[in-house]
Design a protein around this nucleic acid. Structure first.
Lengths: 256, 256
DNA sequence: TGTTGTGAAGCGGTTCACAGCA
DNA sequence: TGCTGTGAACCGCTTCACAACA
């Protein structure tokens, strides 16, 4: 999901569990940092600490890739960087198109970490004719009318959607029609796509709401064990029936 | 979350599974849309379709909150909007501070969906003195020196980190010291925090790498069953030992 | 009749604990 | 001796299938 996942069922891809795939980039980042410090080998314990996971999980993850460690010693950093990069498909270049060049789209276009590892911003696309030609992050914005051609000519297979929610599904459909088979969606919209197309979503609002849930619980622990009914007036249900809430419940008709 | 989660162990919070909590915002969004269209009731099937999940999962999720439906009829939209909002803690106001007002920080500050539901950008903080006072999205940027005071005065308990990776841990420490107990981290860094502090991370780079993994697999299916060794020269391992890769393996010493 | 609510089965992932090996 | 690799136990989530009931 970032985050939650609008994604294929969690079957294994060539024997590698989805959860493991999601952690490989984490390991890769930690290993890259070690590599830059010219550290030759690393133990599962050390690497796990750097990646923020526990060592048993890391070893299990690596075991799906093959036996790349040396017992009694650890893992060869450079070798592992290469193996994970290869497994993730980062030894090749991935041209990416960003559709919707508002604040967020522009921020992503300018994001440095983007290009650093296998990805390259090949095109910026927006529906506003006034933006056409204007360079953002050194890349000229092209008009959405040419979306199909732009995708084809650049061999784009990964699209990033940063449009307003109302436009997201339509943009998605056009991207898919043009040949895009992986989509990273920043719009707060549930996208429907044909089989064979992967969608991952990043949603700031959802992340905040999850944090708010836990935050509320923390606050509740300080006071009484059960939270008092909320002061805000709740809507009254259409039918007046007894309701069974776990706790902090309220009567069907709320007194003002 | 988005993606992968640097998070507390997946124990249940007041009986509500973490996976369910992560979906509640999705249901809430779909319900809000129905509410705006003045739809009075909705079945689990319909709502599930709108939220992009299956109906059995939705019913199970709702069962953790209580018995809020009516058999043979469905769920009262307004009532459910309120119950989920309350469960997520959105009936109260959450002041949020954004630290690091670069492209991304500014984009988030301008993001409309932010304020719409319970959250309010209470402060923008940056380490660059030149930015101090400059308004972004109508909110003046304040200097990081005053971070502690700003957090306290505004009662901020949720912090958003959009700094460069090198500054993220330090900013995190200062936020936590000032009383922040929930952090949304956009920096590609593993944050370490004391118990009781929640961290969620959003990482564009990780999401893209996961997509690339699957994209590579799709491409591989078209050609031969096993992927040919990558043309790029792999690093040679320090020790020359037989390696056991699942397939597409390469000899310890790669011929040019 | 139509839809919810939920035991129970199934499944994927995590953790444990130790055998295997440099 | 020390660290990896992994079977097995465990755990939480998903899915199934149907009883409960407005």
């Amino acid at each position: 999901m970032a985050t939650g996942r609008n994604h294929r069922p969690a079957t294994r891809s060539r024997g590698i569990p989805e959860a493991t795939v999601a952690r490989l980039p984490l390991y890769l980042r930690a290993l890259t940092a070690l590599s830059e410090r010219s550290v030759p080998t690393v133990s599962s314990e050390e690497l796990a600490a750097a990646a923020g996971v526990n060592s048993a999980k890391l070893r299990k993850d690596f075991s799906y890739l093959g036996s790349y460690g040396t017992r009694g010693v650890g893992y060869d950093v450079e070798y592992l960087v290469y193996q994970i990069s290869r497994e993730l498909g980062l030894t090749q270049d991935w041209p990416v198109a960003i559709v919707g060049i508002g604040n967020l789209g522009a921020a992503l276009a300018n994001y440095g970490g983007f290009a650093s590892r296998g990805f390259r911003v090949a095109a910026l696309i927006d529906a506003d004719p006034a933006m056409a030609g204007t360079p953002v992050a050194g890349i000229p914005v092209q008009h959405a009318d040419d979306l199909d051609r732009i995708i084809s000519e650049n061999g784009v297979s990964i699209g990033v959607i940063t449009t307003p929610p109302g436009a997201a599904q339509q943009v998605c459909d056009r991207l898919v029609a043009a040949g895009v088979t992986s989509i990273l969606n920043f719009a707060p919209t549930v996208l429907s796509v044909p089989d064979g197309v992967d969608v991952r979503k990043v949603d700031l609002s959802i992340e905040l709401q999850i944090l708010a849930f836990h935050e509320q619980r923390k606050a509740g622990e300080d006071t009484a064990a059960d939270s008092a009914p909320d002061p805000a007036a709740p809507p009254v249900r259409a039918t007046t029936t007894s309701r069974k809430g776990p706790d902090g419940d309220m009567p069907a008709v709320m007194p003002a």
